[in-house]
Design a protein around this nucleic acid. Structure first.
Lengths: 74, 74
DNA sequence: TCCAAATGTGCCATATAATGCACATTTAGG
DNA sequence: CCTAAATGTGCATTATATGGCACATTTGGA
C-alpha cells in the first residue's frame, strides 16, 4: 500500500501536538493496535478509522480534483 | 456514518465524467457491490477502495490541517 | 406514460480490518 | 552507554468490508 503521504501527515501532526500513540488511541477511540499498524505502514484502514484520527488531530479529509502538474512524477 | 461530502464528491465526479457505476467499478477494480454500497451511503470503505476510485476519477485524497472558520456549523 | 438503463438491496461466502495482550525493538534523554 | 518510554510485531478473536448474483426500485428519455 502506498499511503505514505497520509500516514506521514497523521504521524507528524500527532508528534507536533506531542501526543503519543497511546493517548491518540484513547482520545480518538481507535484501538492502539490499529493505530500502530497504520502508522507503521501496515494495513488498510477504513475511512472511519482515519476520520476518527483526523478529528482529534484537527485534520480534515478532502477529495479534490487533481490538477495538471507539468513537473511531478505522475 | 457521515461521509456525505466524500460520497457526494465521488458521485458527482463520476456523473460529470458520464461513467456509470458498472464502468467505474470495472475501471477502478472495485467491486460493483462495494461501489453501490459506498455511493448509497452504506458501509465504511477502506482507504484502498477510496484510493482506487479516486485514481480513476482524477481525484486526490488530502489530509489538511483544519483552519479556523468563524462562521460554519462547527 | 412507459420502458430500458441505472442504481439500490438482500443473501451469502471469503478476506481482512479492528482490537487486546504480551513481548520485541527502537528511540530519546540522562 | 543505559534505560525508560515509545513504537513495532506475533498471535488469536471478532466484526465487518469486499464482492458476486439475483432481484427490487428508481430514474431519465423517448
Amino acid at each position: 500500500m502506498h499511503f505514505e503521504k497520509i500516514i506521514t501527515t497523521i504521524k507528524e501532526r500527532r508528534e507536533a501536538l506531542q501526543v503519543n500513540q497511546e493517548n491518540l488511541a484513547k482520545l480518538s477511540g481507535v484501538g492502539l493496535r490499529t493505530l500502530k499498524q497504520f502508522e507503521s505502514g501496515k494495513g488498510n484502514p477504513t475511512l472511519l478509522t482515519i476520520s476518527k484520527l483526523a478529528d482529534v488531530l484537527g485534520l480534515e479529509i478532502e477529495l479534490n480534483v487533481k490538477r495538471l502538474r507539468s513537473n511531478e512524477t505522475s
